[in-house]
Design a protein around this nucleic acid. Structure first.
Lengths: 226, 226
DNA sequence: TTGGGTTGTTTACACAAAGTTAACATCTGA
DNA sequence: TCAGATGTTAACTTTGTGTAAACAACCCAA
């Protein structure tokens, strides 16, 4: 199994640019989500929880800097890379952007090739070792390296999707994950599966663990809580 | 009887130099991987997990020092030797390189012969005890020096690939190894073998040992567990 | 050199587990 | 209470793995 593809959200109001960049990033194995204005960028960022967000500065509804400011105000995006697309020599934007927590800048115009290698570079820079860190909550221990879960020391083996789902939910105990977020994270943004798929997996996890550590939040999603 | 070939990654932007060095190192039994720029070096380092990385200082995309800096930031390369190829008397590079965790320098120009003996010297210097360390888990003992396995004291002889595979998995009991990781480690990065090859070898190991100490994690890989 | 044995790889197929869907039951909050 | 959301179950589809058998490469001894 390859590790899940890195997810990138690109927000730009020019459809052509959006399309070219999307195509090239997808070619290199990235999972790409697009937005055509600031509001949409914020919405999609919430829905898909990307690893990297590329924001054009000049956009309708909300400009890139406003979007960045809003996202940086939310704990969910603490570990998300945010970079700006700016016109060359736009010093003012640079200054403002850094103020609001951007991680870097990409100057326009830019070739798709350069864009891809820049994106690769971003991910190298933040290559997280924590991907494989064990989570321990109460009597429950989740060991990503072993693909195993222990409850009161008793090993419980979950199937791949079950494990990924539990591990995802347990990554932030107490926080509610929307059904959409879960779908995007575990199944990817391209895959389309039915409404009941998540429920069934949740059910299997509850069954295997014996404890109900997953709480349903009706109309919203699920959360891990013990 | 020989332990698995040492893997060396060489990054240099001059194809001629790359070819000559590669040829000579291969002659001496090393498994050589090449890269023609900094980005590729990082990528291949991740993919192939070499024992020694030789970096030209002057390279496109990223220079050797940048590459070194990035790799040293990752736990996976803690035990990897990194040496630089530098022009004679390039003191500045030396200083910078050491700062970022290089293990040594090789001055250009250098003859293939000298290169090979230097490489041999590197490996002698770090002759890892773990290569020849017996692994013992439960009733199972793995003796890398003898290429032998003992179960409850009874000697069991495995074929080369079988032994390497078991030894690899047993190096971290409980941890799941992805099929890709296994392929890269046991078969090498260049070799392309079919999907079923791993399974067959796993099967032979299970058969010969009599105990099922290898657990399948469907869709992920295998792990050693007893 | 030859030929048998060993090791490694591929192929083809069977099978079991995982994942998904659909249909229906149940719950919950306005 | 009732509609919408979720839980449950079983059937179905897909995927990945196990296995046997054949083939290829290699080694070694006669």
């Amino acid at each position: 199994m390859a590790p899940a593809a890195k997810k990138i959200l690109i927000a730009d109001d020019e459809p052509d640019i959006l399309e070219i960049i999307t195509y090239n990033l997808q070619l290199h194995g990235y999972d790409v989500v697009t937005a055509k204005d600031g509001d949409q960028a914020i919405q999609k960022a919430r829905e898909t929880n990307p690893d990297l967000i590329i924001l054009d500065i000049m956009m309708p509804k909300k400009n890139g800097i406003e979007v960045c400011k809003i996202l940086r105000g939310q704990p969910a995006f603490d570990n998300t890379l945010i970079v700006f697309l700016t016109a060359l020599n736009d010093e003012l934007s640079h200054v403002k952007g850094l103020e609001f927590g951007a991680d870097d800048f990409i100057s326009k115009p830019i070739s798709p090739k350069v864009m891809v290698s820049k994106v690769n570079a971003f991910f190298r820079r933040v290559a997280k070792p924590e991907d494989s860190k064990a989570v321990e909550v109460g009597e429950l221990r989740i060991e990503p390296e072993e693909y195993m879960v222990y409850y009161k020391g008793v090993p419980i083996s979950l199937a791949k999707k079950e494990f990924e789902l539990l591990n995802y939910l347990a990554s932030k105990p107490g926080r509610v994950f929307l059904r959409n977020e879960i779908l995007n994270q575990i199944w990817g943004s391209e895959v389309i599966v039915g409404d009941r798929t998540i429920d069934v997996h949740i059910r299997k996890i509850r069954q295997k663990l014996g404890v109900d550590c997953i709480t349903t939040v009706k109309g919203v999603g699920y959360k891990f809580d013990i």
